[in-house]
Simulated scan of single mutants.
Amino acid sequence: MTIENSLELVSLQDADTSTWTRIVKSHDQSTPFHTLAWKRAIERAFDYDSRYRLVQRDGVIVGVVPGFETGGVFGTDIVQPFCEYGYPLLEPDVESIPVLQAMANDRGRFDTRIVKEAPQSRMVGYSDAGFGGIHTGVTFRLLLDRPYEDLFEQAFETEVRRNVGLAHDAGLSVRTVSDHQGITEYYNLYLATMQRLGSPQFPRSFFHGLFDEFGTDCTVLLADLDGTAVGGVLILSQGSESVIWSSASDEAHWDRSPNHLLYSTAIERACEKRAAIDFGRTSPESGVHTFKRQFGGRERSLVSMVSPPHRVGAGSLSQYRHLESVVTQLAPLITYDWVGPRLKEWIHE
């Protein structure tokens, strides 16, 4: 699709993957969800069609636009699924409005383009390009601008420090997963958590795919008690930033504070290589929000920008939260092996 000012949106081809990776690695606002590792993991586990686009100017690639075709209520949603961020990455001298206009037009009549935005993206002009916006939650981002010991004493709330000490006193220890057997251990915790919440689960293959495709940029930590995993977190990294993308725990051991220990350990490990860690999306009114806030990160709003604007509801997560009272009662069916992953694929969040 041709854009004004000699810009053009073209489909990503195999020959262009090295250029895509170069742009992502060199861009200071890239995330794990802009990488081709994320794309490959999605393709291994889900039956989506890729809508990855390159922004080309006079034959030179000057930006990347990630996304997949997913199921929608009416037509198709074009979105980067299962993550917090899916905005374009552009070279500094590329105007964002013409690119956004092309993205808005790069869809069928009944399709919806959803762009998961964040304050750091520096994309401007969504309204001028024909997008509407909707709030989807918040995240906490902790700058790792000092040694972990200082963060522990200065940024963490007293309750965190107390619970980390309690976890150690209770005999919990943390190990890093190094093989697919460990991924299976984490998935079993994750599946039990989804069953408790009455929420459809990712297929097992997705977690194994993330482990394979991200390599050392996928870290899974397990909290052990007497050799048994009672909690875990899955962390994805790109460049100087890490994202705690998934977490799970056995509620029978919450009194031993495995989640506090896992988050503090994730932060400690990130301090060795990264400049910031993101705690992932949460609802402002939730208990998870209260938990994450204790670690001293800065709260930031998350927004989805939607075209056409009258379909802005397609970018909202509240439509799924309204079903919570129903799905809890249906949890055994919703999390059944062949039901949950297919429902998750359709929801794409």
Rank of each mutant, 00 (worst) to 15 (best):
N188W: 05
N188D: 14
L189S: 05
L189R: 07
Y190N: 11
Y190L: 06
L191N: 02
L191V: 02
A192C: 01
T193L: 07
M194K: 15
M194G: 08
R196G: 01
R196M: 00
L197R: 12
L197F: 12
P200K: 01
Q201P: 01
P203T: 08
P203Q: 04
P203M: 08
F207Y: 14
F207Q: 12
H208E: 15
G209I: 07
G209M: 11
F211Y: 14
E213K: 03
F214H: 09
F214N: 13
T216G: 08
D217Y: 11
C218W: 04
L221C: 03
A223D: 10
D224A: 09
L225F: 13
L225A: 05
L225W: 06
G227D: 04
T228I: 12
G231M: 13
V233T: 15
L234T: 04
L234K: 05
L234Y: 03
I235T: 15
L236A: 08
Q238M: 11
E241V: 15
E241M: 11
S242E: 12
S242G: 15
S242W: 00
S242C: 12
I244S: 08
W245F: 06
W245G: 00
S246P: 00
S247Q: 10
S249V: 00
S249C: 04
E251T: 14
A252K: 14
H253C: 09
W254I: 01
W254M: 11
D255L: 02
D255M: 01
R256K: 15
R256L: 09
N259Y: 05
L261D: 00
L261A: 03
L262M: 08
L262H: 04
Y263D: 00
Y263S: 00
S264I: 03
A266D: 07
A266P: 08
I267N: 11
I267F: 13
